[in-house]
Structure formats: structure tokens, C-alpha cells
Nucleic acid binder design. Structure first.
Lengths: 158, 158
DNA sequence: CCATTCGGTTGCATTATTAAACTATGTTGC
DNA sequence: GCAACATAGTTTAATAATGCAACCGAATGG
């Protein structure tokens, strides 16, 4: 009854996303999945989290359509966890998180990797937000507009 | 000793960002702060979280340089929490989360708001990743390159 | 076969979250 | 100036989530 308050059904799309993968480990599991890790043991070794936690997270991510289970690619009887299109859609979020650390981290020397374009090997550009007519937008150039069609549910939120 | 494993000192910039605001509430507090909410009571009313949790989160976000406390703008003796530049830098992450929900949510009708450019009132474009020479990149067009200068710390991670 | 790896589950201790009550200032109406 | 209320928290106690280690069955490897 006093369980962690769910963000599902919230009107804010940010809260809705966090409801799916806003916990301590899910995004890191998704990160691993997007760079090609797919076996239970791979995730566990890479992340160093408890196996029961990993099991519940993987189950949740499969339930919510971020990952899917497929027969192992090496012909063994085991299963693999691979990202769905919905899972691949999380890539820009990971890029945004990465770029924030690259720009604002106190100890950038501790960051081990750079995201580069595979073809040229050069660092990618910063993600940027544009208007439909091509102007680059910062936060103050934007506003939130209420959608008239939205069926209200719980909290106003944003 | 068995406390939640810290992600600080991790080599992965994504993990480092999550160490700062990767919990259940911080990003929502930051979202609120970026749309102009600044008083303790405003956050509490908007988010509906327990006041002790809000207090610890605000303290943490101030410590980590995401928010800063300033005298209240209305001349009262109270304080306000306002985003620092480091806090404003989180905006693209929120946009990425929003756009993911807009694209993949099962119940998009429950989403109350759209992000528009203030000048024209039109929805913003999708965040996109570009190479330095202007090619649009998807996840498979990118790679992770190890930075030779990085001083290794703990886990390989990514 | 037999030992080992893989992919979990179970039980227990610790930590985090929650709601509610309480407190200390600050503000407002009179 | 003072009672009443608002603000911004802290404290307390209950419940839920997390972490760790031990276990377990199926799959694999030799």
C-alpha cells in the first residue's frame, strides 16, 4: 500500500518514460543491450549488479517491450535479450546523458569513451533542438502547449 | 555497507550522469525547475512526493551543482531553488525522454502536453544526431572509442 | 558420467521510500 | 502586537526495494 509511487498514467511524457526505465539500473542494462550485450551473464558481469535485481529488471524490460527474448545466436539452448525498436528508440536519451556528462562532469578525465561516427571515427556533434523551420532552440525558446485531445488522468504535472 | 551501489567513479558517462540524477524523483524535480517552479512547496504540490524525500533530493541537487538556492524573488525571507547552467544543460535529456514517450508510448492520448517553439507555436523537430560533416547518424552508424588519456578507475562498463 | 557454467530463485539483512506527525520560522489579518 | 495560518522542513515508524550469498535445475564440456 505504501509502495513506491508509480508514474504510470501520469500526464507528463517525461514521467511516463521514467516509469518504464527510470530506476537505478534499467538504463544501464539498455545501454549494454544497445552496444551488443545480450546474455544474462554478460549484463551481470558488465554491471556488477545482483542477479535477482538483474532478473527482475530484464523481466520488466521485456514486459514493457524494450527488450525481447530470442533463442541464443550461438545455437545453444539459452535465450538472449535483444532490443526491440522501442528499445533502440532509447538511443538518443543515452546520447543526451553522455553529452551532459562530457560537458558538465567535474572529472571528465575519468570518462573512458567518446561516441564517434563509425565512418570517419570523429566525435559526433552535440544533440541540438530545432524548430520546424530550422531555428536552433534552447530551453527558453520553447513552451509547453496543452493538447486539447488529451484525456486527463491524474496530476497536472506538466 | 550493503547500500545502493554508487555509480560515481564509473567510467561510463551515462552511469556518471545517472549517479547524479538517476533516481526516481530527481529528473522530475529538474523538469519542474526548468519550467519555472522554484519553491519547496511548488515542487511538493506538483510532484506529490514525500517532503523528506524532496528535501534530500533538493539538497543533493544543490550539492551537485544542478540547482542553487537564492533569496526568494518575491522579497520574502524564504529561499528559492533555481537551475544552474549545469542544470539547464539537462534540458536535452528531458526533451529526449519526452520524444521517446511521444513516439513509443502505448497510450499517447494520456500525454497532456507538446513541446513547441515559443515563436511559432509549432511542435519542435525530433532530436537528431549528426556527424561533424553533417550526416545524420543512427545508433549503428556510431561507435565507442576509448580515450587514451582517460585514467581508468573501476569497471570497464562502456 | 561428472564437473562446471548458465540463468536464474530464495532467504535474509540492509537501505530507501512513504505518510503522518511534529517543529521552527515567516507571514497575514485584525 | 498577536493569534492564525503558511512555509519549509525534520522525525518517526511502517512498508517496500535492494543487495548479498547460498542454493538449484538445466545445459554444456570433457
Amino acid at each position: 500500500m505504501v509502495k513506491r509511487t508509480s508514474l504510470a498514467g501520469n500526464e507528463c511524457p517525461i514521467a511516463r518514460a521514467l516509469d518504464v526505465f527510470g530506476d537505478w539500473w534499467s538504463l544501464l542494462i539498455i545501454r549494454d543491450a544497445l552496444i551488443g550485450r545480450r546474455r544474462f551473464g554478460e549484463f551481470q558481469a558488465s554491471l556488477g549488479l545482483a542477479k535477482n535485481i538483474l532478473a527482475t529488471r530484464l523481466r520488466s524490460l521485456v514486459e514493457r517491450g524494450i527488450l525481447k527474448m530470442v533463442p541464443a545466436s550461438d545455437g545453444s539452448a539459452y535465450q538472449e535479450y535483444v532490443p526491440t525498436p522501442k528499445g533502440h528508440g532509447i538511443f538518443p536519451i543515452l546520447v543526451a546523458l553522455r553529452q551532459w556528462s562530457e560537458e558538465f562532469d567535474e572529472d571528465p578525465d575519468e570518462i573512458a569513451t567518446t561516441l564517434v561516427d563509425r565512418e570517419k571515427g570523429k566525435p559526433v556533434k552535440k544533440l541540438a533542438l530545432y524548430s520546424q523551420d530550422g531555428r536552433m532552440l534552447s530551453a527558453v525558446d520553447t513552451a509547453l502547449k496543452f493538447r486539447p485531445t488529451a484525456k486527463r488522468t491524474r496530476r497536472a504535472s506538466a
